[in-house]
Every structure is written in C-alpha cells, then in structure tokens.
Design a protein around this nucleic acid. Structure first.
Length: 593
RNA sequence: GGGGGCGUGGUGUAGUGGUUAACACGCCGGCCUGUCAAGCCGGAGAUCGCGGGUUCGAUCCCCGUCGCUCCCGCCA
C-alpha cells in the first residue's frame, strides 16, 4: 500500500508515529517559509506541514503542488501547537510533519471547485461526473447508498432470503411502461427487452421453491424523466412464499426502521407506520401517496352547505358531488393576487373555480366572495368543522369526487410548501392498503388492473368479480414516505382458474395470454405456492435518507432529464456495420413537421 | 407531445438599448514560517449558449434553435 493510514483516522494517540498518507490536495496554503496542505481521501482530511527548514527537497516539491494533485507524504504525526487545533475536522488535533513528499500525479485545474460545496451547473457536473463524485456531498451520498444496500443484504440474509440474479435480456410485453429493446443478432427481426422489473421471474422463483428471494435489481423503463424517475433505477425486489399481506408489511416495516436508524441522515417521524386504506387516504388527503408530516387534511362540509343559498354547492350535494375543504393556518391575510394564484393552481388541477373563506386575525370577521350565500350558523359550523382559527384561510372545492380530491390534494401540497411544512427533516412512512383491484374501464369497455394482473383480490371479494368487479379490493399495498411512493407490492394469484377469470375481465384473450405469459400460466399449473412480494425503490429511499431532492444525487452516473449521459455522450450513433449485423435500418423522423 | 424557469470569464453571480461588461471564488506571478474560506500586491481570462430579426446601435427587445432543470401527459 502507498499509505499506512487514511486521511481521516489520525488522532492524538498517534502522535510520535511515523506514517505515510496518500490522497488529493484539497487546498494549499503557502506562507512563504512553511506550506500547509490539506490532504484529502475518502475518509477525511489531514493537515500536512512542509517546513522549509525541515526538508529543502520536500519544500521545493510542495511549491509545485496545486489543488487536486495526487501526492504521498511520509512524516511524523505531531500534536498541533496550543490554540492551533481545528475542531472542524476529525484529525484537527494533529498534523503531519512532512519528511518526504512525492507527487504521484498532477492535475489540471478542475472545471469547478472540488473542495467547496458551491452550486454548479448540472450539465457541468454531469459532464465531469468523476470530479463531481469526488466532492464531499456525493461521496457522502454514494457511501450512504452502499450502507443502505449492505444493511438490506445483511437483514434479509439473516432472515433466510436468497439473493438470486435474473436476466437483463428478457422478453417484451405490451403491459406497463415502454420497454427498452435490444435487437437480436442471431434472430433477425427479434428483440429482447430490458426488464421493467423482475416481476415474472421472481414469481417463477417461488414456483421453483426458493421461498424467500430478493435481489438488488436494476430496472429499465423508457418513459419521460422526473426528479424521482430515471430510465434505469434500482429496486429491492423481494418475494416470499406461504405469506399473507401483513407478513410482508411487518417485515418491510422492520427493515425500513432498522435501515433508517442505521444509515439515514434524516430521522424517522414515527416507528410504527400507520396503515391507511386506499379509500381513507383519498378521503383524508386526496391522494394515495399522502405526505403525513403535516395535517391540513381534507374535510367534508357537504352536509353544512347542502341547504345554503350557494347553488353550486347545493346542486352538487344534491347530485352526490362532495364539498370538501382544507384549512391553511395563518393564510387568512392572503392578497387578491395570492388567492388568484391559488385559483390558477386549482384550475390547473381540474377545478372550475375555487371558493375560499378568510378569517380576520383580530375581528374574526369572515370574508370571501361566497360569504353572502351563508348564514351565520352555517359559517360558524364550517369554521368549527375545519377547526379554523382567526387568521386562517379555508379553501373549498366542489365537483366530481375525483376532481375535488385532485384539486385539494394539489392545494394541500402547495400550501404545505408555502408554509414550510415540507422542509421538515423527518421521514414519515405510511402504508396504503386495500387498493381497488381494477381502475376504471378503458375505452374498449374492459377493466384495467390497478397494479398488475397477477394481484390477488381480497378473498372475501372474489365472489364480487362476477357481480360488481369495481367494488373488488385487492391484496395490493404501497409504502409511502413524505409523499413519495417508495415501495409497491401485492399478494399474487397462484390459482390458474382465478388468473383466467382476471384475464377475461381485463380483456385478455387466452391466445394473447398464452403468447405473452404462457410460461407463467404453465408454471402455475405445477404447484405454485401462495406467495407475494414487494419492491422498494432504492434510489428514492436513499435520496430521502440523504435529504436530497433528486435521485440523481444518489446515483453515481445518472442521466439528464433528456435521458442522455453527458459524460460518455450516450446515446450515440453506431456504425453501419453494427446496424447491418443487427438487421436494423434507421428511419429518422421528418424534420420541421 | 405540452407548459414554466435558467443560460454573462474556469465556477457562482451582478448588470445595462449606447464609452473599456462589474464582483467573489478559482487560475498565473510576487511577498510572507502557523495557516486552516490564510493574508497582501500585481496579472491573465468573456464573440454575454447559437442563429435570425427589430434598431443608427442588441448581452439587453422579438422569433427560432440548442443545452440544463421542474411540472403535466406518460410511468401496470
């Protein structure tokens, strides 16, 4: 080894020892007769002192040294002079008195500061990702990611799980997201697909009798990107046999609590994760992925306004359309302009308009364009129901149920952001359970699975498949944290007859099913055990635990929002020869259309 | 596919329809033996993303385009 210690481990107890360190020059301070270098490696920083009076040769070398040079220093660990300690670094008690300094490699001046946490343009960071990764923030995040994955592996290993790799080259199915395709050279005109997740394979591993499987699995989806979505991402893919829903939930909850305690920079809000039904989540928060770090829940005031003079509300209530509201603390003094902004946000979310009531902080007088339609008792009843206080703002929406929920959920998030609730540094997990098995009908009149077609209906709802399939709830569950979906899974159908029925309901002919899932269906005829699983998104979880707003910050080599790699310049054109071998002809889109 | 934001020395920003585009950090040189965001002195470094238009004159206004980013659609 070119070093005896790391740059983060020397302490007062090492004083007097002769050591060799190697790393990058974080910063150089040249005092004329003495040069200080902060030597940095993954582990930390150590101050190196090069004294002209101690070694002329080393001093001459040190004068040449610049930021990010890679050097090796041998010398004696020395206690810093009284009052010269640096409490900001772990090695601040000591310094290394250089006897021999070797330049292992020189460095060009980097395109941005490595030693500072300055904001740098995203495209520059991504082009020089290897330098960006050298910075403290990214080192911290990537190592945090490693620790999280290590924790997961150890945790599951201790509980009898087997990690099994599944193919990256697999089969395309038209369900779900757009596939990344890989042309086959050997089979002209045919394609592999990169897995959107190892869903089918993990179920087959249950048929194969492994009972407890997991994989840190790379997944690929050719869809547009978001702050929490990259075209390739990592899931903890997990499947268990002979389990019921709560077995999976309890296991994952224990895993999450343990992992957050072990590695997270952001603490848990609570150790027991609330379990909300899909219906309850939508009623209270307007969404199936609520941020429960704060309240501002949706409250139904339909009964109070049903007999008011405001026809929009009375007609809606009469037609079964709800009137619901949220109360934004301290926003009662919002200006006309601010309220108009909120109305724009509501409209964008699908509202036709936005009603509001503002309570004066001192006089408690209620103002708002719809006040005149209500009597004092009605207004008082609304204020009481909303638990609104002087100075608060009540935002009211009435429309079709799903519109109301969409609008108020959007406003709830917006107000939380404005009020600083979303800055709260804690992780608030909750489970969402009892999802509907089907989403609403597609244009062709058939049902669509809300999760995927292997999801088990709740046992007691199976008879409803024939009579009222919309009412059927499933054994699907999501784990949500701070408003992000961080895991999703279900208990699977292991019975061939039931699977056939589901496929019929979603309009899958037996021929189609055979072509796409033939191997699955056949496998289920050979003694498939009852089984279920879940797939937590590693990138999202690590980003949350690192306090990062974007999963790029926890991926070593992420892609841009346009799905490109600025460092390697991917995707790129390939040679005609390569295309020819793959039997591929490129037809570019017409420009200017 | 649609909408919003951003683009000015290496990095981060300021700025203006009109003289030499300003500041901080970084970089280069000099001074300095206890600094740690070292300090002091001096210096180099910008076709203001690119193309077109309006104008006597555009970094600034307009259109287009490219790049980065956030959101909607999309993501079983």
């Amino acid at each position: 080894m070119l070093k005896t210690h790391s740059c983060g481990e020397l302490r007062a107890t090492h004083v007097g020892q002769k050591v060799t360190l190697a790393g990058w020059v974080n910063r150089r301070r040249d005092m004329g007769g003495v040069i200080f270098l902060d030597l940095r490696d993954r582990d930390g920083k150590t101050q190196v002192v090069i004294d002209a009076g101690r070694s002329q040769e080393s001093f001459a070398i040190a004068e040449e040294i610049r930021s990010e040079y890679v050097i090796q220093v041998t010398g004696e660990v020395s206690r810093r002079p009284e009052g010269q300690e640096n409490p900001n670094i772990s090695t601040g008690e000591i310094e290394l008195l250089a006897e021999k300094v070797t330049i292992l490699n020189r460095s060009k001046t980097p395109p941005f500061h490595i030693a500072r946490e300055d904001a740098v343009d995203e495209s520059v960071r991504l082009k020089y990702r290897y330098l960006d990764l050298r910075r403290e923030r990214m080192q911290r995040n990537i190592i945090l990611r490693h620790r999280a994955i290590k924790f997961i592996r150890d945790f599951l290993d201790e509980r009898g799980f087997v990690e099994i790799e599944t193919p990256i080259l697999f089969k395309s199915t038209p369900e779900g997201a757009r596939d990344y395709l890989v042309p086959s050279r050997v089979h002209p005109g045919k394609f592999y697909a990169l897995p959107q997740s190892p869903q089918q394979l993990k179920q087959l591993l249950m048929v194969a009798g492994f009972e407890r499987y997991f994989q840190i699995a790379r997944c690929f989806r050719d869809e547009d990107l978001r702050a929490d979505r990259q075209p390739e991402f990592t899931q903890l893919d997990l499947e268990m046999s002979f389990v019921e829903r709560d077995d999976i939930l309890d296991l994952i909850e224990e895993l999450m609590v343990g992992m957050v305690k072990a590695v997270s920079l952001v603490p848990l809000a609570h150790e027991k994760f609330p379990r909300l039904s899909y219906a309850e989540a939508v009623e209270r928060f307007g969404t199936d992925r609520p941020d429960i770090r704060y309240g501002m829940e949706l409250v139904n005031i339909s009964d109070i306004v049903a007999n008011s003079a405001f026809r929009v509300f009375t007609e809606n209530v009469a037609a079964g359309r709800p009137v619901k509201a949220i109360c934004a603390p301290g926003c009662g003094s919002y200006s006309r302009k601010q309220l108009s902004e909120l109305e724009d946000i509501a409209r964008e979310a699908g509202a036709k308009g936005l009603a509001w009531l503002a309570i004066h902080p001192e006089t408690e007088e209620i103002r708002g364009p719809i006040v005149k339609f209500f009597n004092t008792e009605q207004l008082q009843a609304i204020v009481e129901r909303m638990e609104a206080k002087p100075g608060d703002l009540i935002l009211i929406s009435s429309d079709e149920k799903r519109v109301v929920h969409e609008v108020l959920s959007t406003l709830r998030t917006e107000m939380a952001r404005r009020l600083g609730y979303t800055d709260k540094k804690e992780l608030a997990f909750c489970w969402i359970v009892d999802f509907p098995l089907f989403e609403e009908e597609l244009e062709d009149g058939h049902l669509a699975p809300s999760h995927h077609m292997f999801t088990m209906p709740k046992r007691e709802h199976i008879p409803l498949l024939d009579t009222d399939p919309h009412a059927v709830l499933s054994e699907q569950y999501d784990l949500v944290c701070n408003g992000f979906e961080v895991a999703g899974g279900s208990i699977r159908i292991h019975d061939r007859a039931l699977q056939n029925k589901i496929m019929q309901l979603i309009g899958f002919s037996l021929e189609e099913a055979k072509e796409q899932f033939g191997h699955m269906l056949e496998a289920f005829e050979y003694g498939a055990p009852p089984h279920g699983g879940i797939a937590p998104g590693i990138d999202r979880l690590v980003a949350l635990m690192a306090g990062e707003p974007n999963i790029r910050e926890v991926m070593a080599f992420p892609k841009t929002a346009q799905a490109t790699d600025l460092m390697a310049d991917a995707p790129s054109e390939v040679s005609p020869k390569q295309l020819e071998e793959l039997h591929i002809e490129v037809v570019l889109p017409q420009k200017g259309k």
